[in-house]
Amino acid sequence: MSELKTVISDQIKKHGKGRDALMPILQSIVEKNNYLTNENMVEIAKELDISAADVYGTASFYSFLETEERGRYVIRICKSITCDMKGKGKVLRTIQDMLKIKIGETTQNKKFSLLETNCIGLCDQGPAMLINDDFYNHLTPEKVREVLVDYIRNKN
């Protein structure tokens, strides 16, 4: 059984074959691969006996269920008002300069993608961002540089 099929069948074991298994399935694929491929969505549709359009329609509603190719590390910088007030702009420019990508883009080596996101609930610690599931707060250009350097050097 392919890796994908295992992921799907594990979730089906847990949640049944009903439509409410869809979100956990989508989540677990994104957790593994950072985004959903077209083939993923077709496979899910087959397994849950729903239309592929419905899988796509649902996935496209949620900002963490990416349907476009993303890097291994997805940086989501918060653009809500308080992070913005605390200097998100400079932090964002630092990231863009370091990784040579703009918002929505992925580095050539497919390591990083850069996205803006709405409030991540760290308004008292802004500017803040997520890299995959981990959060980084009180960011400054210096601090974000340190964080990224660590990813560049020490993580694959």
Binding site: S80, T82, N118, C119, G121, L122, C123
Partner: peptide, 9 residues
């Protein structure tokens, strides 16, 4: 809790 400015939960 997604309301910008909310983080009590």
């Amino acid at each position: 809790e997604g309301e910008p400015g909310t983080f009590k939960d």
